[in-house]
Design a protein around this nucleic acid. Structure first.
Length: 198
DNA sequence: CTCTCGATGTTCT
DNA sequence: GAACATCGAGAGG
């Protein structure tokens, strides 16, 4: 079995049941896997952000449930995928107990399986293939048809263990693109990333 | 490297 | 009708 092959099962529901900060931290180094046209495309998660539901003015669910945020109020371990800026999709993972609209945004991956396929999907571009939330959704064909998808079944789209990232390689910063949020929420270091290099 | 700006359409007011 | 959990191109230093 060579490097890059799938060796573990999907992360179980209990992994996602925790709070967003801990799930966001633990997702670093995990492998995001997508099956497209029978081919496996995957990458190691290197950037995440925690969103704390009704307590967090940066979170879409801050003002309660709407048709769009309904999935966040459901069971953990499901995907919350939304469309933004008229052209991009964003992938989140629902965390916490049912009724608590917590989520973790997946903001970047480092390609593992099928880099060539990702290049093709990204229009031939080879640099910065999936180092942003919109980019990774294009590179992995993630759109609203996967909103609500159960990530624990090991079918079509899931996440599995891959690498363990030590604390000294983890960087924490404020979240990106949330200028609309209250200042006290904007300042929180709820963005997690694997330090470049390694 | 930094910055500014336009694209584009769903969502909620 | 405004805002938006972004991206890439283009201009300038």
């Amino acid at each position: 079995m060579g490097a890059g092959e799938t060796v573990s099962k999907p992360l179980p529901r209990r992994f996602y049941r925790g709070d967003p900060m801990s799930v966001a931290r633990q997702l670093l180094g995990a492998r995001l896997v997508r099956v497209v046209d029978g081919a496996v495309v995957s990458g190691m998660i290197v950037e995440t952000e925690a969103y704390y539901g009704t307590e967090d003015s940066a979170c879409h669910a801050f003002k309660g449930m709407t048709p769009r945020t309904e999935v966040m109020f459901g069971n953990s371990g499901h995907a919350y995928v939304y469309f933004i800026y008229g052209m991009y999709h964003m992938l989140n993972v629902v965390t916490g107990p049912v009724g608590t609209p917590w989520a973790v945004l997946v903001r970047g991956i480092r390609p593992l399986d099928n880099f060539e396929k990702m290049v093709e999907l990204r229009g031939g571009r080879k640099k910065g293939i999936a180092d942003g939330p919109g980019k990774l959704c294009i590179a992995m064909v993630i759109d609203k048809s996967l909103n609500g998808w159960d990530l624990t079944t090991g079918d079509t789209l899931w996440i599995e263990r891959y690498e363990s990232i030590p604390d000294e390689h983890v960087e924490k910063t404020p979240r990106i693109g949330i200028d609309y949020a209250h200042p006290e929420h904007r300042a929180l270091d709820w963005r997690f990333l694997v330090r470049a290099r390694a």
